[in-house]
Each structure stands twice: as structure tokens, then as C-alpha cells.
Amino acid sequence: MQSQHDHDHAHDANAAHRAAPMVDEISDFEVLEIAVRELAIEKGLFTADEHRRFTEWAESIGPAAGSRLVAKAWTDPAFKARLLADAVAACREIGLDWAEPTGTGTPSDYMEFRVLEDTPNLHHVIVCTLCSCYPRPVLGHSPYWYRSPNYRRRLVRWPRQVLAEFGLQLPPEVEIRVEDSNQKHRFMVLPMRPPGTEGWTEEQLAEIVTRDCMIGVALPRPDRKADDPRPVQPARRPVESTSANRAAG
């Protein structure tokens, strides 16, 4: 059902636009997204201006802000203290305002944010068993596996097994603390600075603080600047909402 279509050729001839390849083919999904949005606006469910503001905000966020917070905390003990005491205020120091884009945040990112500090005896990992609450202003949009029932329903019950599937195995004496962000607080993990990064600049350090490290399913390593791909698997032995198994649904 898709067809070829030409974007503006005069435009393409411009050198500035020639570099990046693009998909020059209309897909049914692209059409569906536009159709749903246009009808919702016409019916007054929301306005075009509201949609534009949320889109601009959605395009502006990503895990780089979280990486900067961690790298700064690693190199500046006073900043780290401020970050742990009042994370929303500390975010403003790096130019990140949790009040965007509405003045009071988004409908699912409230202005309550805490940073969880790992120690040699304590490892944090975040989840939202109810939906997929995620600290989007600092980490961007959640990865698909974070939203998957497999992760959400199993991490609270079998955290060590789930972490092992991510390649992270921790000794039993290390306390694993699962933080289920089911209400208004959003959380991010402050991992420990790894050995082998002595003398590194804040920018160098930020490069190894990947998204997965701030969720708590990976530890930063001096030799890794990107997260490994994570296939989404169907839930195995999920926790169900039955009284026998008492769980999150």
C-alpha cells in the first residue's frame, strides 16, 4: 500500500540536504499517525499548539543530560551533594528545567526527581511496574524493553535473574535495591565511577555513562560508550495480579 513519492527536488539539490539519506516512501504507519493526530485536533481533544510544544520537547530530550549529571557528580563532590539533596535544583545548574514544556512538567513527568547513589554494597535499579514511568527529562524516552511486560513484571520479583540477562551479575553481599516508581517521583541511578578513568575530563566520563547505567541494568566501563542492543522478549514467569502470586499488573 505504499508508493514512491518525490520530495522537493530543488530542495534536494541543495548541498546541505544531500548528505543524509532519507526514506522516500510513504508508509501506512506514517499516514495513520498523521490521520489520528489531525482528527484529534479537529475534534478539539487538544490543540495544534499544544502538540507542537510537546513535540519540540520530545525532540529535545535524551540521555545526554543524565550522563552530564553523573560525570559532573563524579568530578565535583559539592555538585554531587547538591544533586543528592535536591536533584531538580541541580538539574537547573546544567540548564535542564523539569518544568518544561508546560510550566509544571508533562502529564507523566512530575517535578519530583531523585538520584539514587550506588555504593560498593548497594546497587539500585529502576522500574515502573504499573506503566512505564521514566525520568524522561534526564534520560529521554524509555527504551522499548523498559516498557515491556517482561522487564516490568519480572524485575521486582527476580531482579538478579533479570540483571543477569542484561549481563550484570552482582555478588549476593551487594544489596540490590529495586526502585518501583509507581507514583510521582522519578529516579535515576548514580553509578560508581569505574577504575581506569583516573584523570579523565568530565566530557570523557560522560561518554561512558550510558542510558543503561543510569537505569541500573549495566555498570559503566572505560571501554564502552554505547549500550548493547536488547531484544524484547515475551514475559517468562511474569508476576500476575492474582492474590496467590501478589503482583503488579
Binding site: R160, E173, V174, E175, V178, N182
Partner: peptide, 21 residues
């Protein structure tokens, strides 16, 4: 304590935090 949440949870130290009204 995870041991209080789940029967036969094998690791003594592990915990879970969540927010409640």
C-alpha cells in the same frame, strides 16, 4: 525487604522501595 514481599526469596540483603500515600 524482598524476603518479606516474596516467599522463598533467596537473597537476604535485597530490598525494594516504592512510594505510597
Amino acid at each position: 525487604r524482598q524476603k518479606d514481599l516474596w516467599e522463598e526469596y533467596p537473597f537476604d540483603n535485597d530490598t525494594l522501595q516504592t512510594e505510597l500515600p
